[in-house]
Write a protein that binds this DNA or RNA. Structure first.
Length: 584
RNA sequence: GCCGGAGUAGCUCAGCGGUAGAGCACUGCUUUCGUAAAGCAGGCGUCGUCGGUUCAAAUCCGACCUCCGGCUCCA
């Protein structure tokens, strides 16, 4: 089915939903009901319902549906429409907008239900709309503006066939199973504590292994890419953010300052850039030093609004895979290309194939929200576009989502559950160098201001690991697996041999545990399986005699008996090469 | 921050005015086992916090905190 046909189907289902709601709650005020990526929603004013009402609404929808032979378009005059929707201030507002824009006003009628609508419906709704399902209920601001009243939104979906609907619902279930918050608890990766504070992640030993492995990878990769590592403190004087210009924009999103006895105010750092700029400024720089690439897993704190917090994906404290590249204007595009390639290198390594770019541009109606002159904005955009063109990565544009000091390019990656993660923000920044008075001596002896590239390919540990958990469903590649192998003695008699196998593998640098509990082998396999341990090494009499272990992969595959030396070498190789396969 | 929902054992959840429950996990004993759960026994809790109503509150009411579904926001 064509995309717009699917949209028509979904938009039609939104009408059906509104009809059912009107039937059940005559005072409800339908507002807007568009199709969205995975279905549709309809927003209602003056409707107070809960999830338990959804089946009732579905039933009503099913009852109404057979009477919907078609959508009939009726053009009406402004006055007629004002009269018809006199009780619905939201529709009246839309009518006035249509009148102002000199647009025709149309009403679509299906069965007994009439709705103000510009059209785009299925041809024979009674037939087409059978496979719908209401999914959830939520609040949403009228017109998406938080100053407006809160409406009640009902989400649903519809598909041309029952098979497609079932498939979609199964996918939703899978995503639920893979939710990083659920797996994070079950696999003992991270936790939070009310005593510590919301949005502040406590990494458990197993989660910390993933964090450190990633960090080591980034350090290695970036060292090879010419980055130098630095470390900067977590707090800083308010003046630094006055210089950067962030303070007026982000004061409310920062933890309030600590006031010292001498009157000085210190903030927890919400980003690393200004600190790195201070390192740049610590001595006089020559063009010969450029590009100067300063990298740090910098820990930042942002006081995100309470309702924003979400597992590992939106937190108040996070460690960013951050770096700033100081370079000449001529070097900027090539450096930016390298940064993009670095992203792709990381993604390839983790089997992430589904990603695209989003370019954040200024909202042309709100130019006073941004700093810097027209020329600077145009040039920054141009330099970044030049880089993107070379890489042929799909890019969409989004007006209004630039930083206050320049356009930006975000990488959006999609996990195997379909969830999208905005993972890294990149910029060619022609503004902050000036603002911080950064200089270098050029060939001709003149002082010039460096261009600054901001980049963080792996985003923050928190969000990136949140992504990885869902992407792999907890089945991490061997190099990231907190426990790489479990030795399972089939009875207590082989406990000693199991310990010896563990020692041998430990010597090879692997993370191995022995499950020495007084349980049946089947139970131990089940538990290792639930912990998603890549290798289960079963040992009994045969293995003890042969200095071997029977290898079961978490895929369920039984590789049979292998010499301990071979297992150690193979697993060591698999881990060291950071591949995703378990047994090449 | 806003709308809606929820907080009971480590986890999943039942109980909804009259002395706190189950399964899993945990501990002990029996069992010594060949590729996804052996059996028996035992300990398990300020029922999110504070306040109120009541002879009596996990249960009813209020405020706050935290979490969940969204909205808005994300340097």
């Amino acid at each position: 089915m064509e995309e717009n046909e699917l949209d028509e189907l979904r938009h039609s289902a939104a009408h059906l939903l509104a009809a059912a709601v009107k039937q059940l709650w005559p005072n409800a005020k339908p507002t807007l009901g568009p199709p969205i990526a995975e279905g549709f929603y309809y927003d209602f004013g003056d409707l107070k319902i809960s999830e338990e009402d959804l089946p009732k609404i579905e039933k009503e929808m099913a009852e109404i549906l057979p009477s919907w032979k078609e959508f009939k378009r009726i053009e009406v005059s402004p006055d007629e429409s004002r009269k018809e929707f006199k009780d619905n201030p939201y529709k009246l507002e839309m009518i006035e907008e249509l009148v102002n824009d000199k647009q025709k006003i149309s009403i679509y009628q299906s069965g007994d239900f009439r709705d103000l609508c510009r059209g785009g419906h299925s041809e024979s709704p009674a037939k087409d709309l059978a496979n719908f399902k209401l999914l959830s209920i939520a609040g949403a601001y009228w017109r998406g503006d938080e100053k407006n009243p809160m409406l009640t939104r009902i989400y649903g979906t519809v598909f041309p066939t029952k098979e497609e609907l079932d498939k979609y619902l199964a996918q939703r279930e899978l995503a639920k199973e893979r939710d990083h918050r659920k797996l994070g608890r079950e696999l003992e990766l991270f936790t939070t504590s009310e005593a510590v504070g919301p949005g502040l992640i406590l990494w458990l030993p197993k989660g910390n292994i993933i964090k450190e492995e990633l960090e080591n990878w980034a350090k290695e990769t970036e060292a090879a890419g010419g980055y130098q590592r630095v470390t900067t403190p977590h707090i800083t004087k308010a003046g630094l953010y006055e210089t950067s210009g962030h303070l007026p924009y982000y004061k409310d999103d920062m933890y309030p300052p600590m006031k010292l006895a001498d009157g000085e105010e210190y903030y927890l750092k919400p980003m690393n850039c200004p600190h790195h700029h201070q390192i740049y400024a610590s001595k006089s720089r020559s063009y010969r030093e450029l590009p100067l690439r300063l990298a740090e897993y910098g820990t930042c704190y942002r006081y995100e609004a309470g309702g924003e917090l979400f597992g590992l994906l939106r937190v108040r404290g996070f460690s960013q895979n951050d770096a700033h590249i100081y370079c000449t204007l001529e070097q900027a595009t090539e450096e930016f290309v390298q940064v993009m390639k670095l992203h792709e290198h990381y993604y390839r390594g983790l089997g992430i194939t589904d990603y695209y770019l989003e370019m954040g541009l200024r909202d042309p109606k709100k130019k006073d929200k941004y700093h810097g002159d027209e020329k600077m904005w145009k040039l920054a955009e141009e330099l970044m576009r030049k880089a993107v063109v070379q890489l042929k990565i799909k890019m969409i544009e989004k007006t209004g989502s630039a930083a206050f000091y320049g356009p930006k390019i975000d990488f959006i990656i999609r996990s195997s559950t379909g969830r999208e993660f905005g993972i890294s923000t990149n910029q060619i920044d022609l503004y902050m160098g000036e603002r911080f008075g950064l200089k270098y001596a050029d060939k001709d002896g003149k002082e010039k201001t460096p261009v600054i590239i901001h980049r963080a390919p792996l985003g923050s540990h928190e969000r990136f690991i949140g992504f990885l958990i869902e992407h792999f469903g907890g089945e991490f590649p061997v190099w990231l697996s907190p426990v790489q192998a479990v030795v399972i003695p089939i009875s207590e008699k082989f406990g000693e041999y199991a310990e010896k196998v563990r020692e041998d593998l430990k010597k090879a640098g692997l993370r191995v545990e022995v499950d020495g509990r007084d349980e049946k082998m089947q139970a131990k396999i089940r538990d290792a399986q639930l912990q998603k341990v890549p290798y289960m090494l079963v040992v009994g009499e045969r293995e003890e005699k042969a200095d071997s272990a029977s290898v079961r992969l978490r895929s369920g595959q039984d590789l049979g008996e292998k010499k301990v030396g071979e297992i150690a070498n193979t697993v060591k190789e698999v881990a060291a090469s950071r591949i995703i396969d378990l047994w090449p």
